[in-house]
Simulated assay, not measured.
Amino acid sequence: MGIFDGTRPGATITREEAGIVVNRLRKNFLALIATTNGNVSDLDDRLKKIEAEG
Rank of each mutant, 00 (worst) to 15 (best):
K48L: 10
T12M: 09
I50T: 13
G38I: 02
N37Q: 14
N23P: 00
E51F: 11
K48R: 15
T35C: 05
T12C: 06
F4W: 10
A11K: 14
T36M: 09
R26T: 06
F29G: 09
V40I: 10
G54L: 11
A31Q: 10
R24N: 14
A31E: 14
M1G: 15
A52V: 05
R26Q: 13
G54C: 08
D42Y: 02
V22C: 05
M1Y: 06
A52Y: 05
G6P: 03
N39E: 12
G38E: 09
I3P: 00
E17G: 03
F29I: 04
L30H: 02
A34N: 05
N28K: 11
T7P: 00
T12D: 11
T14Y: 05
K48V: 12
K49D: 13
T14V: 04
T35W: 05
A31W: 08
N37A: 10
D44C: 02
I33L: 15
R24T: 04
N28A: 13
E51I: 15
G10R: 06
V21G: 00
T14E: 07
G6Q: 02
M1C: 12
N37W: 02
A52P: 01
N39C: 08
I33P: 05
E17K: 01
G19L: 05
T12G: 11
T12H: 09
I50H: 13
N37C: 07
I50C: 06
T14M: 08
A34S: 12
G6M: 04
R24I: 05
F29C: 09
V22P: 00
T7W: 02
A11C: 09
D5L: 07
T36V: 07
R8C: 06
T36A: 11
I33R: 15
N23A: 14
F29E: 14
E53G: 07
N39R: 13
I13D: 00
I33M: 12
N28T: 04
T12R: 13
D45E: 14
S41R: 12
I50N: 11
L47R: 06
E17V: 00
A31M: 07
T12P: 08
R24K: 12
N28E: 14
F4Y: 09
T12Y: 02
K48A: 14
L43F: 09
R15F: 02
G10N: 08
V40D: 03
M1T: 08
I13E: 01
R8L: 06
L25C: 09
A18R: 15
P9N: 04
G10P: 03
L43H: 07
G2M: 03
D44W: 05
I3R: 00
L30N: 01
T14D: 08
R46Y: 06
A31C: 03
L47V: 11
A18Q: 15
L25D: 10
M1S: 15
K49S: 12
A18T: 07
T14G: 09
A18L: 15
K49W: 05
P9A: 07
A52L: 11
N23H: 08
E53F: 04
T35L: 11
V40A: 06
E16G: 07
I20L: 14
G10M: 01
V21Y: 03
F4A: 02
E51M: 12
D44Q: 13
R24S: 11
T36E: 15
G38P: 01
A11D: 10
A52H: 06
